[in-house]
Each structure stands twice: as C-alpha cells, then as structure tokens.
Simulated assay, not measured.
Amino acid sequence: MAASLEDEYDFWLLDLDGTLIDVEWSYTREIFDRVGTKLGREFTDREADILWSGLTGSRNRQLEEWGIDPTLFWDAFHEEEDPLVRAEQTYLHEDAAFVTDLDVPVGLVTHCQKFLCEPVLDHLDIHDWFDARLCCTEQTGWKPDPEPVQSVMDDLGVGDNGHVGVLAGDGANDVGAAWNAGLDAIHVERVGHDRRGLCVRGDYRVDSFDELF
C-alpha cells in the first residue's frame, strides 16, 4: 500500500453493503418477490435494484414516492430475510482487502441491521477488520446524518477535532454523512453512473479501492 494516502488519515470509517460486500442478485430478486406478495405489489427488477442499492438516496423517500408505506415495507422486508441465507449469498469484493493493511483505527457504519450484519461478518470472517461497529437504527440516526458517524468516532477515541479521518461508501448518503461529520469522503462506484442515473461526487471518486493505492 502506498504510504501517502494511509498516512493522511488518523482513522478510516467504512460502509458495508455495496462498499465492501455485495449479495447475489438471485437472493435480492427472491426477497423482493416475497415482499411484493405480502404487500400486494410487484417490484420490477429496476425498482428492486433502486431500493437494494439505494440508487436514489433515501430509500424511505423513494418508497413514499411510489406510494408505499416505509414502515410496512421494512417490516415485511425484515420478516423475509433469513440471516444465515443472506450470509451465504454474500460475497466480499476483492479490493476490500485493503482494510487489512490499514494501521490506524477502522470503524464500520452501516444501515445493515444487526441481526443480518453479524452473521455476514462471521461468514466472511471479517469481524476483526473493525475496531468499532454501528448498525444504524431510528435511535442512532441514519446516514447522511452525522450522529452515527460521530458515535463510531467516539468509540474509536477519535472524536475530537485533532484527528483527521475519512469515510468510504458506495452511496450519496455515505458522502453526505462524511461531510456532515467533518470528514473526507471516498465514493466507490460499484454500479456505474448509467445504472445509478447520476454521478455522486466525493473527495475521491473511484470504481475500485485499488485505484487509491
């Protein structure tokens, strides 16, 4: 790893889904089929992709635009997700291995719920990659709010202004959370601008973490 970028930051924060890991499409499609049956509404491949990957930013806002109650959707969604099946269908991006080379505190800030996140981390054997972890909830707040980011920074002991950090993620919410918390932002574009329908700007914009080092 090139020392320059690593030495630039006292700590790193990372998103999980779409940033370090992803899930096989067949799993996503099956979940949306079952949720659609529960809600009495079919989801197209494009709609499932938008919600799963957060392509338009706030998933709740997108659901509301489609006339779907977010609470009903998420209740049905989480009822249909089996943590062990989700873990088995999850794979690690090859370029995510850079995390193991970081010689500074590393934190995880994810919207993935704890009952799903923990089995995934165990299955991929990446639990020890992170010195602190937070799975966002209504109580902690959701990215792009800075509160969950600040909470992990406090857990890492880097919450004061004397530390310089960076947050890496695959969505606009990650970039917003970084900037709102006073951090630099890395946007890793896993899906492509055409599929996303817009260009997410960050302090660094890459298609792979390999480009950074």
Rank of each mutant, 00 (worst) to 15 (best):
L5M: 12
E8T: 10
Y9L: 00
D10F: 00
L14T: 04
D15N: 07
L16C: 09
L20M: 13
I21G: 01
D22P: 02
V23L: 05
I31V: 13
G36I: 01
R41I: 04
E42I: 01
T44A: 01
I50F: 01
I50Q: 03
W52D: 00
T56M: 10
G57L: 09
G57P: 08
G67P: 01
P70S: 11
P70H: 10
L72A: 13
W74C: 07
H78M: 11
E79P: 00
P83N: 10
P83H: 09
E94D: 14
A96R: 03
T100R: 15
L102M: 13
G107W: 10
V109Q: 07
C112L: 12
H123R: 13
L124M: 07
L124Y: 07
D125Y: 03
H127V: 07
D128Q: 11
W129Y: 14
W129C: 05
A132K: 11
L134G: 04
C136T: 15
G141V: 12
P144G: 14
D145C: 11
E147L: 12
Q150R: 15
M153C: 12
D154Q: 14
L156P: 01
L156R: 02
D160S: 15
G162E: 15
G165N: 10
V166M: 12
L167K: 05
D170C: 08
V175R: 09
G176I: 10
G182S: 12
L183D: 07
L183I: 10
L198E: 15
V200I: 15
V200S: 06
G202D: 12
G202E: 08
Y204F: 14
